[in-house]
């Protein structure tokens, strides 16, 4: 039996605490007791993989999932999934979901007055390539109101779910857009104490991935926990 080579723990305050009272839904859902520190075992350094997931054009191009064209500004969202040491994570499954250009989700619980778009579902998935790269074509999502507090609006964002190589490396996050005037007022974006960590959720405008006459490019790199330098002592 090989030694366990654990994944690093998050740097202090670069991950949100469970209770963040400006985000009202945390108040009754955040555990009251601190989590029990668990050294990683074989159960945590292994994890699911998804070699059979089909990532065809409809999975990665959210503008081609229906007969017609969705409304809104076309964007390219691309980047790399790497670990904290800069190593690419290959065959990592990324799932995304988002509101349409008007700020409305195709979801029965979304009561926003904005229109649904019959040509936009708002979900996609991809596997990273050998360099850890991924790429989606979609439309820029609209901001939308929510019931957290008076006149609460979510900044434009795309939800990302990412599987790293192990159960200990599992991330769900949101990607934002630079210059969004709603960012300073959003309790979800601002839930993390470390300002640098927060700002890394904001994608970077990227001329290189822009397609002339078609779509603007935004880059969003995702970093997963790296390995400890030495195996855990037995």
């Amino acid at each position: 039996m090989a030694r366990i080579l654990p994944y690093r723990r998050p740097h202090p305050e670069t991950q949100p605490r469970y209770l963040h009272s400006p985000y009202a839904s945390t108040i009754k859902r955040a555990p009251a007791k601190p989590p029990v520190y668990l050294p990683q075992t074989l159960s945590e350094i292994t994890g699911p993989s998804f070699p059979n997931v089909v990532t065809d054009i409809k999975a990665t191009d959210l503008t081609r999932q229906h007969h017609g064209d969705p409304l809104g500004e076309r964007i390219i969202v691309s980047g790399r999934v790497i670990d904290e040491d800069g190593r690419p994570l290959r065959q990592a499954l990324i799932e995304i979901w988002q509101a349409n250009a008007a700020g409305r989700y195709l979801h029965e619980s979304d009561q926003h007055q904005a229109p649904l778009d019959p040509n936009f579902t708002g979900c996609g998935h991809a596997l990273t390539d050998n360099e850890g790269k991924y790429r989606f074509v979609t439309v820029r999502p609209g901001a939308y109101p929510w019931g957290n507090h008076h006149n609460a609006w979510r900044p434009a964002h795309i939800h990302f779910s990412v599987f790293g190589p192990a159960f200990a490396t599992r991330l769900v996050t949101q990607m934002y857009f630079s210059g969004d005037p709603l960012l300073p007022f959003d309790p979800i974006f601002n839930c993390t104490a470390d300002e640098g960590a927060r700002n890394r959720l904001i994608s970077v405008f990227d001329w290189e991935t822009t397609i002339p006459s078609q779509a603007l490019g935004y880059r969003f790199d995702i970093v997963m926990s790296g390995r400890e330098a030495t195996p855990m002592e037995r």
Partner: peptide, 23 residues
């Protein structure tokens, strides 16, 4: 180069659009 792992965010109320494809 090394940087810290990306910050987590809530899945929100509408995750079934993206995550329930693969129940």
């Amino acid at each position: 180069m090394s940087s810290n792992a990306t910050t987590s965010q809530t899945i929100g109320p509408f995750f079934s659009i993206g995550m329930c494809r693969s129940i």
